[in-house]
Computed example of a mutant assay.
Amino acid sequence: MLRILLYLWALPVTLLGMLVALIARSSGGVLHRVDGVLEAAGGWPARVLQRGFPFSGSVAAMTLGHVVVGVSLAALTATRAHERAHVRQFERWGILLLVLYPLAGLLAWARGGNPYRDNPFEREARAAECAARNALEQPASAGTHSTGR
């Protein structure tokens, strides 16, 4: 039941993301679903992502609710942990994130920081990305030890 409520809370932004995903598909991109998130790679939106945005520049992927749009399938795979953090942010904040995210960037800039890199929403996503990378780098035998014999 909670999962349904999270999808509904983020739905207005997800619908916008679905529109972007359909534009990607109709302009040569591909769509697929991974863990309940629609991912779109390539097409016209990929060119927009590559051109970049004010403050962030070029990006490999972008999240809109439960939709992630990326420049390629490889980019979607590489950014999955980071973008899933943004999915969780949309589940937490809903459509309000569309206002809170730029305001947080503006506040970071007003404090002398970078509006993208120092944005707390981006910091949270980078932390999730680092945690996922560290989990993958842990050796499979991390829980075992040698008896020294």
Results as ranks from 00 to 15, higher is better:
17 G>H: 07
17 G>R: 06
17 G>P: 04
17 G>Y: 12
17 G>W: 10
18 M>D: 05
20 V>L: 14
20 V>Y: 07
20 V>F: 13
21 A>L: 08
21 A>P: 13
21 A>V: 11
21 A>Y: 13
23 I>K: 08
24 A>K: 02
24 A>F: 06
25 R>K: 14
26 S>A: 09
26 S>L: 12
28 G>C: 08
29 G>E: 12
29 G>C: 08
30 V>I: 09
31 L>I: 04
31 L>P: 14
32 H>V: 01
33 R>L: 08
34 V>F: 06
34 V>E: 11
34 V>T: 08
35 D>C: 03
36 G>P: 14
37 V>A: 03
37 V>W: 10
37 V>F: 12
38 L>D: 12
38 L>P: 11
39 E>H: 09
39 E>W: 07
39 E>G: 06
40 A>H: 11
41 A>S: 15
41 A>W: 09
41 A>H: 13
41 A>G: 14
44 W>M: 11
44 W>I: 07
45 P>H: 07
45 P>V: 05
46 A>M: 10
46 A>K: 09
47 R>H: 13
48 V>H: 03
48 V>R: 11
48 V>E: 05
52 G>T: 10
52 G>H: 06
52 G>P: 14
52 G>F: 07
53 F>L: 14
54 P>F: 15
54 P>M: 08
55 F>I: 00
56 S>N: 12
56 S>D: 02
57 G>E: 01
57 G>R: 10
58 S>K: 14
59 V>W: 00
59 V>N: 01
59 V>H: 02
59 V>Q: 01
60 A>F: 05
62 M>I: 14
62 M>G: 04
62 M>T: 07
63 T>L: 04
63 T>W: 00
63 T>E: 04
64 L>A: 13
64 L>H: 05
65 G>T: 01
66 H>G: 06
66 H>C: 04
68 V>D: 04
69 V>H: 05
70 G>Y: 05
72 S>D: 06
72 S>N: 08
72 S>P: 15
72 S>Y: 13
72 S>Q: 03
74 A>L: 07
74 A>N: 08
76 L>S: 11
76 L>P: 15
76 L>R: 08
76 L>Q: 09
76 L>N: 15
77 T>M: 02
77 T>Y: 11
78 A>Q: 15
78 A>F: 09
78 A>R: 15
79 T>Q: 13
80 R>H: 12
80 R>E: 11
80 R>N: 07
80 R>T: 01
80 R>G: 04
81 A>H: 10
81 A>K: 04
84 R>D: 02
84 R>F: 12
85 A>H: 03
85 A>T: 01
85 A>Y: 01
86 H>E: 04
87 V>S: 00
87 V>Q: 02
88 R>H: 12
92 R>V: 02
93 W>N: 06
94 G>T: 00
94 G>H: 02
95 I>E: 02
97 L>N: 03
100 L>Q: 05
100 L>H: 05
100 L>N: 04
100 L>C: 02
101 Y>L: 09
102 P>E: 01
102 P>F: 06
102 P>W: 01
103 L>T: 10
103 L>F: 15
105 G>W: 14
106 L>M: 11
107 L>D: 03
